[in-house]
Amino acid sequence: MKNNFVLRHLKQIGGEMIDIVVNNGIITEITESGKGHAPVEWDGSGIYVSSGWIDMHVHAFQEFTPYGDEIDLIGVNQGVTTIVDAGSCGADRIFELAAHARQSKTRVFAFLNISTIGLQRIDELSSLTWINKEKVIQTLRQDEGFIVGLKARISSSVVGNQGIKPLEIALEMSDETGLPLMVHIGSAPPDIKEIVPLLRRKDIITHYLHGKNNNLFNESDEPLEILEEAIARGVHLDVGHGTASFSFRVAESAKKHGIHPDTISTDIYRGNRLNGPVYSMSCVLSKFLCLGYSLEDTIAAVTTSAARWLKRPELGRIQVGDPANLTLFSLSRNPLTFSDSQGQQRAADQIIRAEGVVTGGEFIKCEVRT
């Protein structure tokens, strides 16, 4: 469905019913339900609408294994109109990813891995010879708005014997380029108490709800002081569910202590899309409903909050005159059991299902709904 069409009887999260008219990719009218007119109509009765979902942590460079996938399979097919690749590529191949993005229906941004080889290997920071500051700076000079930050995976399997040194280099690069830093946390060494105090406002901790040793909560499931201090500094908390980085127990503790995600992201790639425990953005969002988060707060974490971090407020709103960037989704009461990254399960009774998106002037029905 392209060009001039109306989406009828859509429900906003606050409950108001509206029609949205789209002409040549632009929202030309937002009106009361049943009052919008266009040559082509789509009945959205029972369907919610939000601005297009944004996934702040994916791996979308299909040439890499295991951490790779096809852009539209983890984007528009799942109700996600914008993805941010979280450091799949370093300077050696980032523009190959950009070329793939130009051929896709999903909008793509990227974090540049500080390792030139990126995820060609999964220990990409274990040798300092793979970290080349000049290559990073040269790459950024050629960039045309595709790169939104730098990425450093700071856990034992990635840094090997280098300890905290790759993070120190990443921070120097961040200072020189003015780009914020996304930091993956996981198993020690380095100790989490060495990592978090170094992060600044707008830097991102991804995987902040992982349940491995070396996480951000103590044995009594209370937040570490370094986490509370980081939040006070304006460090951004991103979920990054992934295969091994989301714990229901830790997420419940975080919520109990008032520590909430700034953005909910999937860390999706081919393996955990097909085999779980991620499967889709809808699945991850449904887990946050299961944790007791409201629909409004859950959807804000993949719309307005993510758009604010990206400094692209237009991606987090629905407004006449803007390019149409919409996600359509349903909320059902079917019982379902969800698993976290450690095999722990929780029973849910509310399920979010992506139904379709509007992007690039086109209405696209989702192929993957849960």
Rank of each mutant, 00 (worst) to 15 (best):
L291V: 06
D297F: 02
E229L: 05
T337D: 03
L209M: 15
L331A: 05
I71S: 04
P277D: 03
D221I: 04
T65N: 14
E172H: 06
T28L: 12
R333D: 15
E228D: 09
Y48L: 04
K105S: 13
M173I: 14
I26Q: 13
V284A: 02
K365V: 08
S51E: 07
V108W: 12
M17F: 06
D349R: 06
A110V: 10
I195Q: 10
R8L: 14
C283L: 08
Q62H: 12
H207I: 15
E194F: 03
Q342D: 11
S88N: 11
M17Y: 01
L289F: 05
R153F: 10
N161T: 14
L199C: 02
F248V: 05
E172P: 01
G258D: 05
L140T: 02
H207R: 09
G316H: 05
K133N: 03
D322M: 04
E228G: 05
A348N: 14
V22F: 02
N325G: 00
P223Y: 01
I268F: 09
R312Q: 14
L216R: 04
L167V: 06
R153V: 09
K256M: 09
A347V: 04
W309V: 01
R308S: 12
G258P: 03
G79H: 01
P261W: 00
D72R: 13
L181M: 10
V6P: 05
F64G: 01
D203A: 05
G163Q: 07
S282L: 00
N272P: 11
I164V: 13
K365M: 11
Y208I: 10
P335R: 11
G118I: 03
R270D: 14
I299M: 13
A110E: 02
V21D: 04
H210T: 09
I94L: 11
A170H: 09
I147M: 00
D175N: 12
Q345W: 04
